[in-house]
């Protein structure tokens, strides 16, 4: 574990806590894409299939449980909580994410570290995570004004993978024969997809103005 990876995991945890806070505090999920939350639930379930078979550390197992449980809890709230579900932007959150799931799985069948169930599903979860934010970014563009907590959620969710890229560079430089080509390539694509969001987020922060993504 190095400082970049720890910063990445803590930033990722913070983004999830911010989203839980927004939903709990405002009893509303306006501006949040349920499709992105569902994609993340799929990402965590297929990435952590080894949750019960491989024990790496208490930290590792604890974080995996937190990520899976929180993503499922958020999806449940947005679908079934009597108050929260009413504020879901159903008519704006229309990204046909089936293609993202299909394309990620097809790519995982082609490019993986080993041709085994676990490795193919792991690669699938890596590719799917890279594009999982797309429904959320589309929803932010369509819904105009973005509330602070939702904007902060997306910002930290994008930042965490940038820390992981620093972690991979650090490990590549310090650990002999360390490679993470699949996660590294996918992580660069994932972080690049946030580029315009980061730009408008920085502008809104600099001008102390409301975050607004151009339609």
């Amino acid at each position: 574990m190095n400082v970049f990876r720890l910063a990445g995991d803590m930033t990722h945890l913070l983004s999830i806590l911010l989203l839980l806070l927004k939903i709990y505090a405002t009893k509303s999920c306006s501006g949040v894409s349920r499709k992105t939350q569902e994609l993340y639930a799929i990402v965590f379930i297929f990435r952590y299939l080894d949750l019960f078979t491989d024990f790496i550390s208490v930290y590792n197992t604890f974080m995996k449980v937190v990520f899976i449980a929180s993503s499922l809890a958020i999806v449940w709230c947005m679908r079934f909580h009597p108050v929260v579900r009413r504020s879901y932007d159903r008519e704006l959150d229309t990204f046909r994410y089936f293609f993202l799931v299909g394309a990620s799985f097809a790519l995982a069948l082609i490019w993986h570290e080993k041709f085994s169930v676990q490795e193919v599903f792991w690669a699938f979860s890596i590719y799917l995570e890279a594009v999982a934010i797309l429904p959320q970014l589309v929803l932010l563009q369509r819904s105009g004004n973005v509330d602070n907590l939702t904007g902060q959620y997306v910002f930290f969710l994008g930042a965490y993978r940038a820390f992981y890229i620093l972690n991979w560079i650090y490990r590549y430089l310090t650990e002999p024969r360390f490679t993470r080509w699949i996660a590294g390539t996918s992580g660069v694509v994932q972080t690049a997809l946030y580029a315009d969001f980061f730009y408008y987020y920085f502008i809104s922060w600099k001008n102390n103005s409301k975050l607004k993504l151009p339609a």
């Binding site: 080894d50 974080m63 570290e113 080993k114 085994s116 993470r180």
Partner: peptide
Amino acid sequence: EESSFLKDEL
């Protein structure tokens, strides 16, 4: 020896 599945990262 191919790396086993063990993924130490989240």
